[in-house]
Design a protein around this nucleic acid. Structure first.
Lengths: 249, 249
DNA sequence: ATTTTTCGTTGATCCAGGTCAATGTTCCAG
DNA sequence: CTGGAACATTGACCTGGATCAACGAAAAAT
């Protein structure tokens, strides 16, 4: 379970690993990422520590159990956080979108793998440098704390889903949450009922603690009952949101 | 799902609700709680905001969904964090021990209920006052961030257990984790193999996402196989730790 | 355009763990 | 010490979701 980190570390700046230099001022997630807590001077300082980097779909940025030398902000794309058992069983324990933060600041090995589900772009920091910078910038740390508290709330509600909900309830809950989070991504104001999932059936199963077959059957049944439409592999259109919420519980 | 908060709020200091005044300097968790980040002056200031309070086993300190007006440190006892479904199904999403932090700082309603599993003593703060104090004390906030990151790691590994492990693996993992956390409590240096759980079978089931019957059967079977002993209702003695770890995966 | 590969659906069957029910055990209260 | 309540164990049975297997459909490669 060991792998080379495929990114340029800031300390290796003499060599060009292909990581683009960061220009925070024009960053697409400038106002949504934790960096939003910084003023222009601080931002310039942080910018020197960060390197933009592209990750192809399916590639892994951090490996569970490895010493994690980097943290990052997501600029574009969707990545999954995965905890795996020795025999290959996988549980997706988090899904991160643009402006979300990746990695484990302040010591410790990475408690999970981070893998791109779509082609992605991330702004990477050497962990030690980031830790030092964060320690010196309480506002940044405050943002990070709020984010971590939110993530913890989300994780705990997902524990309820994993431990106590039926397959039907799991799928309904999942579709509603994805509908919300994905519409939060784009510019659309309200929650639209149609959306495109950034991943396939197996990954839905790994999020819900189900098999791919059960996941597929639940979706097919919901379509048969008129709750939703499946125009293509990854598109979902929820017809009866109220009914879906009733099922999700 | 609404209930009166049964504690004295600092702002009502004119009235005695029975909450004891806090003396941080002599606090039993002084060096382990987040307060350890503060110097004597800061501690005195925080002490004015806090009130010690006793909670009887089974009583609930915070209710899921209510506006949560307080946060707290645990001084003594064990409490559970619970997410419940409308039909009564419960999932325990966290267990807190002395020196652990309770509550949801920085806005929002409480995402779960907090209920004492044993008689407990907590040091309570008005949330707003605590938020302000924390915002003004980066070291405290740093401690809180580290704790929250640790909790998040723990929660995510618990998600793997809930979503992907068998009943046998769940019980084995649970016993090992409890063995560690409970020995961390006492003064014993190493991890002893015998310990007393602070809760009953139903609550183990609610932690593992199982029924009480399945939990009981797994324990009985493990005893029959010589893996452990069950000297009394709440006592566990692990005989073959290596085997237990192999099962936990 | 055709082959190959990957991904998704559907069916048949099985079994881990849930459900229902009875019994045993521990712990208080009186 | 006794009766009862709460908790735990055990048994019989059932079912939701896993597993095994085949097939279909879309995308990627040639």
């Amino acid at each position: 379970m060991t792998a080379a980190i495929i990114v340029a570390l800031p300390t290796d700046a003499a060599v060009d690993y292909g990581g683009g230099v960061t220009d925070c001022a024009s960053c697409v997630v400038r106002n949504r990422a934790i960096c939003a807590s910084l003023d222009a001077d601080e931002l310039a300082l942080l910018g020197k520590l960060g390197r933009n980097h592209r990750v192809k779909a399916g590639h892994t940025l951090l490996w569970e159990g490895d010493d994690a030398p980097v943290v990052a902000n997501v600029l574009e794309g969707v990545l999954k956080l995965v905890v795996a058992a020795a025999d290959g069983r996988e549980q997706i324990v988090g899904v991160v979108f643009p402006s979300d933060f990746i990695g484990r600041p302040f010591g410790k090995e990475s408690p999970y793998s981070v893998t791109a589900m779509t082609d992605a772009e991330v702004c990477i920091f050497n962990r030690k440098s980031f830790d030092d910078f964060a320690s010196a910038h309480p506002d940044l740390q405050h943002k990070l704390l709020r984010r971590t508290l939110d993530e913890l709330d989300r994780a705990r509600h997902w524990m309820m889903l994993l431990g106590r909900k039926s397959a039907e309830e799991k799928v309904a809950s999942f579709l509603l949450e994805m509908s919300e989070r994905l519409s939060g991504q784009g510019c659309g104001a309200g929650t639209q009922s149609g959306f495109e999932l950034p991943f396939g059936r197996q990954q839905i199963a790994d999020i819900l603690g189900l098999t791919i077959e059960t996941t597929s059957r639940q979706l097919t049944r919901m379509r048969a009952e008129g709750l939703l439409d499946l125009p293509s592999r990854r598109e979902i259109v929820i017809h009866d949101r109220a009914a879906m919420e009733a099922i999700a519980g």
